[in-house]
Amino acid sequence: MTVMLNVENARKTFTMHLQGGILLPVVQGVSFQVTAGECVVLSGPSGAGKSSILKMIFGNYRCDGGRISVRHQGEMIDVAGAEPRLVLNARRQTIGYVSQFLRAVPRVAALDVVAEPLLMAGVARDEARARAGALLGRLNIPERLWSLPPSTFSGGEQQRVNIARGFISELPILLLDEPTASLDAANRAVVVDLIAAKKQAGVAMIAIVHDDDIRAQIADRTVDVTTFAAAA
């Protein structure tokens, strides 16, 4: 099996300079691997550092130690020590991130928000928009909303736009931060199907899900984040 992600001894501590420089240890000794076509679920209570680990893999949070090796264009690169350009390149071609919240850009239509990752990957505009529409339809976003900016949508609709944006790409690694958090049963089932299809396509996924039922349906393996608890 091809290893897509290899985390070795990654460590993260926040230093809060505005609060007298107190140290907030988040995680240490984070080590696990994810292979192609596998979905690994990170488990542990709130505050255990699950989201922080996803952000470290995405390059959004810096690592204070260790390595985060990601298979990018056939080579293993260390996200923890990479130049910004390389991290950006990896985000365009390798690692996708589906967060709980949509950071909406004012005035951009939902359809274009979803199509954007395909455009960045060089897909023609018409095809990108057609695929975006198909995915929005599958996630039960009515067509009359597609031309509107998602900032006006309900929380659940925004989350589905975000899911569509995350799943539309053909990136080989996906990070899922509570992708089903505020969805109804029908839409949760759609997301479970989308995850199954990504597995079939060989995508490696690291997910955070609090719903036991969803976890049972998507997880090939669970990594207990409490074993990475940093000594306070």
């Binding site: 090796s69 990018h72 264009q73 080579e75 293993m76 690169i77 260390d78 350009r85 390389l86 390149n89």
Partner: peptide, 8 residues
């Protein structure tokens, strides 16, 4: 580890 080259 290889430094992967970008487009430009």
């Amino acid at each position: 580890m290889v430094e992967v080259t970008g487009a430009s």
